[in-house]
């Protein structure tokens, strides 16, 4: 076992003894000094999660969140040096974390917050100019054959819980959850505009439709499997309003067309 293998193992497992071979100039117990590293690692990673999941944290309080995040950190330390995305597995962990079972919506709030992080850092892209959009979308006969390429900084989340209302309630100074019914289903569109990330409530059918469009379905195919109550014109209007269409292709299987 190498020095760093032993050191690394003891960092994340407080049950392991202080690694051998450490000394202090004054002969004091090196375990207390090693504990500084243990603490630095855990605190910095818990802080990274707290930064990415502020509403999840507010819903359970700092102490609960800190304890929950610490379990996650020691069980699943980052595999990447890019900490912005360290929360990718956190929502699944929250969903299976028994002490959080009383808040069944908590994991989806975490999913929404992780989606916000992804949307914030997604690639830049230029929306299609209005004139091109008008030309391409203006012919109802061609619409079913069109495939829209959506902006990379866009995502949707469908939840059996009121994730948008829960999130929005925490964006003001005085958080008031009295008007929020967490058990009502909601879908969210998460988009970036002017460097800001927005969370917008969306009808569930529209969210499913946008998801299929984003995955590369033609408008016709996405409409054919649409959920009851879909207002496709309204869903398209939402995409246009957020300047979320960056290219439009026509017909054929997904891989055969080129971006405009």
């Amino acid at each position: 076992m190498t020095t760093q293998t032993e050191f690394a193992a003891a960092l994340l497992d407080a049950g392991l003894p202080c690694p051998p071979g450490l000394v202090a100039w004054n002969g004091s117990d090196p375990a207390l000094r090693f504990a500084v590293y243990r603490n630095n690692v855990v605190v910095s990673l818990v802080d990274a999660l707290a930064d990415s999941f502020p509403v999840t944290r507010a819903l359970v309080g700092d102490d609960f969140f800190g304890a929950m995040a610490q379990v996650y950190v020691t069980a699943a330390p980052p595999r990447s040096r890019l900490l912005a995305f360290y929360g990718e597995g956190f929502a699944d962990f929250v969903a299976a974390f028994p002490p959080a079972a009383a808040l069944p919506w908590l994991a989806d709030v975490a999913r929404l917050e992780m989606l916000r992080v992804r949307v914030c850092h997604a690639a830049d892209a230029e929306p299609l100019p209005d004139a091109e959009l008008a030309a391409l979308l203006g012919d109802p006969g061609r619409l079913p054959l069109l495939r829209l390429v959506l902006h990379p900084a866009l995502g949707v989340l469908r939840s059996p819980h009121a994730v948008v209302d829960l999130w929005a309630a925490h964006q003001v100074e005085e958080v008031d959850l009295s008007a929020v019914d967490p058990a009502s289903a909601q879908a969210a569109l998460v988009v970036r505009a002017g460097g800001e990330v927005y969370v917008v409530a969306l009808p569930a059918a529209a969210a499913a439709f946008i998801e299929r469009v984003q995955a590369g379905a033609t408008l016709g195919d996405a409409f054919a499997v649409a959920e009851p109550g879909l207002d496709a014109a309204d869903a398209l209007a939402t995409l246009l309003r957020w300047r979320a269409i960056v290219a439009i292709g026509e017909g054929g299987p997904e891989h055969e067309w080129q971006h405009e």
């Binding site: 760093q4 293998t5 050191f7 690394a8 960092l11 994340l12 590293y37 630095n40 690692v41 910095s44 990673l45 990274a48 330390p77 980052p78 595999r79 990447s80 040096r81 900490l83």
Partner: peptide
């Protein structure tokens, strides 16, 4: 080390 990143300077 060993695939894990500790976000600290060790």
């Amino acid at each position: 080390h060993g695939g894990a990143f500790f976000n600290d300077l060790l």
